[in-house]
């Protein structure tokens, strides 16, 4: 069953067209990867789905569970079951990890929060009372961001570059978290240009220059990415070139 559709979605930022009549459908309960080179529009697509400030003036439609959500604000989309993990999570002066996770949590259950952190190899006793600020490493903030997604229990989760800034051991915990979300029936959209992350998906899309240029089985997309995208000499500079597909 479809959970989310983008229909002819276009977005212009700073006079550059970043998304170009994007048509993409996500299926409930699946782990989808949206892959593509840097500058293709992947993170922009995620921000547009979430309705972040600056990303709402779109053409086209975003249909979530059969309803057009174009006019819904970020928090309204969140309360309808969509949430997002940032590539570079925010830092907060004075706000503790505990308070952040409680605020993010659907059930406000401290035990669930403890178990979620432990599942990400983070000792709750060491982290809960720490401030979510620059004293935490990028990898720690990333895992806390992921913990906040898990306790949020959303129906659709956008993970923007979940592996950036993460060490190898932590990456395995991230993958465990993706598996957990999938087991729950959560729809996961992985924004990634990493083959290791793409490998975790059930289904994949390839985005280039603001458009979907291929979709399907992850192995097919991985092969296309390796054979064509990596050696491709172009850069994703919006409006300045036409994509070279199939060459």
């Amino acid at each position: 069953m479809e959970i989310l559709q983008l229909k002819d979605v276009s977005l212009t930022l700073n006079e550059s067209r970043i998304l170009r009549k994007l048509n993409i459908t996500f299926w409930q309960g699946y782990v989808h990867a949206v892959s593509g080179p840097n500058g293709a529009g992947k993170s922009t697509m995620a921000a547009t789905i979430m309705g972040l400030e600056g990303y709402r003036d779109i053409q086209g439609s975003i249909i979530y569970r059969g309803r057009n959500i174009n006019k819904l604000a970020v928090d309204e989309r969140a309360r309808h079951g969509i949430t997002m993990a940032w590539q570079d999570p925010a830092r907060y002066e004075g706000l503790s990890v505990r308070d952040f996770l409680m605020a993010s949590s659907k059930n406000k259950d401290p035990e669930v929060i403890n178990n979620t952190l432990a599942g990400l190899s983070m000792n709750p006793a060491q982290y809960l009372d720490r401030a979510l600020d620059k004293t935490l490493s990028g990898g720690e903030r990333k895992k806390i961001e992921l913990a906040s997604i898990i306790v949020n229990e959303a129906d659709l989760v956008l993970l923007d570059e979940p592996d950036s800034g993460i060490d190898v051991e932590s990456l395995e915990r991230i993958f465990d978290a993706i598996d957990l979300l999938k087991k729950r029936g959560t729809t996961v959209i992985l924004i990634t240009h990493s083959l290791a992350v793409l490998e975790r998906a059930d289904h994949a899309f390839l985005l280039c220059h603001g458009e979907i240029i291929d979709k399907g089985d992850k192995a097919k997309i991985m092969k296309y990415f390796q054979d064509k995208c990596i050696p491709c000499g172009h850069k994703n500079i919006p409006d300045e070139w036409e994509p070279v597909i199939g060459k």
């Binding site: 928090d75 989309r77 969509i82 940032w86 999570p89």
Partner: peptide, 12 residues
């Protein structure tokens, strides 16, 4: 803005 939008994306 990023701090706020993160919290709003959690439903606050």
């Amino acid at each position: 803005s990023k701090q706020l939008q993160t919290l709003m994306s959690r439903g606050l």
